[in-house]
């Protein structure tokens, strides 16, 4: 059942979308085109000379087992960040939705962390888990657990996931709460009268009706985990220990801005672009089918 509205004329609609098209052209098509062009060269850092290497940069990257391993790291990291931030947010939103007294305060407090920049969030969590003076590390020590994310790869991954997901929970919470409140009470009450308990109601009515929100958040959170978690990784682990937390976007930075290897960095950006494009297509083609609007 598709509803379509048709507008007459060509110029007015074109004029109306022009600002958006311009922005996309300047901030997306132009830099993306530059990245694709540069990925075909090995330039020297100062831009004094450029050597054409065709697909050499891609060959160099894809033949590197550490770069290929970074795909797995990125997948694990993105899935964990998305699951944790959406799962916790949904749980809190369901609780907040049922709250009658003090819900305003509760909501405000939950939304707060969203205002914290990723790099600052990274420093906060790093401080709590600092191997020497971290308060959480100290309590874990009392419990007999020796926390050391500086050498333990699993712990390092856990820490960057939690730090990245934390600020994101607020954002997801807002959307989930709005989604929950848009579900007609009558439907839920009818189910309750039919004898459906909370969990059954949630599974068969609330969650399916929430699916447009969940789908939207899924897309947005994966993009977030891919690109915007850079600040957290940079402040907490710098990609270590070994390469346990080197996600693709961090490697783009490290090779381009620390290593001055602009050809490889550009090629990596192109690869990232392709991956995110494919992911979004998959999401819209397959997952969206299960979404009830």
């Amino acid at each position: 059942m598709e509803k379509r509205v048709r507008f007459k004329g060509l110029w007015l609609p074109l004029l109306l979308v022009m600002p958006q098209l311009l922005i996309t052209a300047v901030f997306f098509f132009y830099p993306a085109g530059q990245a694709i062009w540069q990925s075909l060269f090995i330039p020297d850092p100062f831009g004094l000379s450029m050597r054409y290497v065709g697909l050499g940069n891609f060959e160099f990257l894809l033949s590197d087992p550490f770069y290929r391993a970074s795909f797995v790291t990125t997948a694990v990291f993105s899935i964990l960040v998305t699951l944790v931030s959406m799962g916790v947010a949904l749980y809190l939103a369901v609780l907040a939705d049922r709250l009658i007294k003090g819900s305003g305060t509760y909501r405000t407090l939950l939304i707060w962390p969203y205002a914290v920049a990723p790099a600052v969030a990274g420093v906060l969590w790093l401080f709590m888990f600092n191997t020497r003076v971290g308060v959480v590390t100290w309590y874990l020590g009392v419990l007999g657990y020796d926390w050391n994310h500086v050498l333990n790869q699993g712990e390092a991954m856990g820490l960057v996931v939690v730090a990245s997901a934390w600020g994101r929970i607020s954002y997801n919470f807002l959307f989930f709460l709005a989604g929950l409140q848009a579900i007609p009470r009558s439907v839920i009450e009818a189910a309750a009268i039919d004898g459906a308990r909370f969990w059954t109601r949630f599974r068969t009515i609330v969650f399916p009706l929430l699916s447009p929100t969940t789908f939207f958040l899924l897309v947005v959170n994966i993009v977030y985990a891919f690109f915007e978690t850079f600040g957290v990784i940079h402040t907490i682990t710098s990609g270590g220990p070994q390469q346990a937390t080197t996600i693709l976007v961090y490697k783009v930075y490290a090779d381009g801005f620390v290593g001055q290897d602009l050809g490889s960095s550009a090629a990596q950006s192109v690869i990232l672009l392709v991956i995110v494009g494919i992911l979004t297509i998959i999401q819209f083609k397959y997952i969206e089918r299960r979404v009830h609007y």
């Binding site: 790869q153 270590g240 220990p241």
Partner: peptide
């Protein structure tokens, strides 16, 4: 050349030694 990156690689590999991997 690329010595900053090479140091990064050395750091990674040394971490593998310190952790016993």
């Amino acid at each position: 050349g690329s010595f900053d990156q090479i140091r990064g690689i050395i750091d990674e590999e040394l971490e593998a030694v310190w952790s016993g991997d």
